[in-house]
Write a protein that binds this DNA or RNA. Structure first.
Lengths: 110, 110
DNA sequence: CGGTATCCAACGTGATACTG
DNA sequence: CAGTATCACGTTGGATACCG
C-alpha cells in the first residue's frame, strides 16, 4: 500500500472527524445558513462546540464565514468550492452508514 | 436534509474515526494480515491501541479475526465482505485528502 | 506471538456565564 | 445574534507490566 494514500486518508479523517462535522458539512451542501439556523438543525450540539467546529472547518478551507457588520450581528456559513468536493464522499458515507445500521438491527433482532 | 441521511453519516463516522482505523482498513483491502504484519505497517501505533481498534472494528462487523490454536499463537485479520464495501469510500477519502494536502502546501508556500 | 490489565495524560465536548 | 472564557468531565490513546 502506497504511503501517500495512507497519508491522504489520515488527512481526510483529521478534517472530518469532529462529532458534528460530517453533519455540518452535509447541511451546508447546497445552501447557506446563518449560525442560528445551523444551530436549530443540530439541537444536540452545544453552542460553542458548534462554533469551535465551524472555526476548524473554516481554517481548513472547507467552510466560508461571512460576517455582516450590522447590529445584531449576522453571520452566514457556506461551503467553499473546495468543501463542495466533499459531497461525493459524504454521499458514500451515507450509503454505507445506512446499510450498517440495517445490518446492526438485523443482528440485534435475530 | 433528511434525518436518516444525517444519522447514516454519524454512524459511518463513529465506525471509521479511530486514530488508525482508516489506515487499518486500507491495509486490509485485498489482503489478510497477521497481527505482527499489521503492526509493522503501522510503526507509530502502539501495541494495544492497535488491538483495541481491531477489536472495535471486529465488533462492528468490518474485520474478521481468525485465531489458529497453535503455539506460538497465530492470528489473522481480514475484511469481512461487509467491510469490503468500505473500499469505495476509502478511495474517495484518499482522493480528497490528496487534494487537500496539495492545497495546504500551496497556501503555505504562497 | 498475541492479548490483557492498570494507570495516566491529553484531548474533545459541554455547562455556565459574560461580551459587543 | 454571534462569539469568548473558564472550568468540569468523559473518552481516547499510550506506557508499562504481566499472562497463555
Amino acid at each position: 500500500m502506497e504511503r501517500e494514500k495512507l497519508e491522504s486518508i489520515k488527512t481526510t479523517l483529521d478534517v472530518v472527524c469532529g462529532k458534528w462535522k460530517g453533519i455540518i458539512l452535509l447541511e451546508l451542501v447546497g445552501q447557506t445558513l446563518r449560525f442560528n439556523e445551523l444551530k436549530k438543525k443540530l439541537p444536540d450540539a452545544s453552542h460553542q462546540t458548534l462554533i469551535k467546529q465551524l472555526k476548524e472547518l473554516e481554517s481548513d478551507g472547507l467552510v466560508d464565514r461571512k460576517a455582516y457588520p450590522v447590529v445584531p450581528p449576522k453571520v452566514e456559513y457556506s461551503l467553499t468550492p473546495y468543501g463542495k468536493e466533499l459531497e461525493i464522499m459524504l454521499e458514500e458515507m451515507a450509503v454505507w452508514g445506512r446499510n450498517h445500521r440495517l445490518k446492526k438491527e438485523h443482528r440485534e433482532t435475530s
